[in-house]
């Protein structure tokens, strides 16, 4: 009698806990961060304070999208570019890519780093083989970081919104 009761309670507990466990995956996962000029930059962040902290850009251009004007703005800072778009509460960061090897991600990866370094810096990254190249995707909840390798060397590093990233 007692045993049966115990079994039942245990079974129920396990059932409840498995249900608990499944949810937690979606909660986790911070977005990748880039830091420059003393500010941390994440995709979807409000652009105004970041632009202020980064100071005068070395290049600036507005690229209209298909309809509507002046929606995307590209700010160049020599070693990296910042692309902003119109979000729900004004201008937000929508892309960021590194242009040369003078800057690195907070994890220490820069253009020219080799595959081993990338694997060490991002052990959880998903690697998509793509012909002669491979791209390491570091996915957060709403943004991801792409590290592109060609012949074993990093050739491009880009932060962008999530959704464009899954391996085909």
């Amino acid at each position: 009698m007692m045993k049966k009761r115990l079994c039942m309670i245990l079974a129920c507990l396990i059932l409840g806990l498995t249900a608990c466990g499944q949810e937690e995956q979606t909660v986790s996962g911070g977005d990748p961060v880039f830091s420059a000029g003393g500010v941390e930059i994440v995709i979807h962040a409000d652009a105004a304070p970041i632009l202020e902290a980064l100071g005068e850009p070395t290049s600036y251009s507005e690229t209209p999208s298909c309809a509507g004007e002046g929606m995307d703005k590209t700010y160049g800072y020599g070693s990296f570019y910042l692309l902003t778009g119109l979000g729900e509460d004004g201008e937000v960061v929508s892309r960021l890519w590194l242009a040369d090897d003078t800057v690195a991600t907070p994890e220490g990866i820069r253009i020219g780093s080799d595959e081993e370094q990338v694997e060490a810096a991002y052990p959880d990254a998903a690697c998509c083989e793509d012909g002669s190249c491979s791209t390491y995707w570091i996915d957060g909840a709403t943004a991801s970081l792409a590290v592109v390798l060609e012949d074993g060397k990093v050739t491009a590093i880009e932060y962008s919104a999530a959704g464009q990233t899954s391996c085909d």
Partner: peptide, 16 residues
């Protein structure tokens, strides 16, 4: 979706 486990647990314990 998968979280019906909670309600199911409560339902089974209550029933039994």
């Amino acid at each position: 979706g998968a979280r019906v486990g909670f309600l199911l647990t409560t339902f089974l314990t209550t029933l039994v």
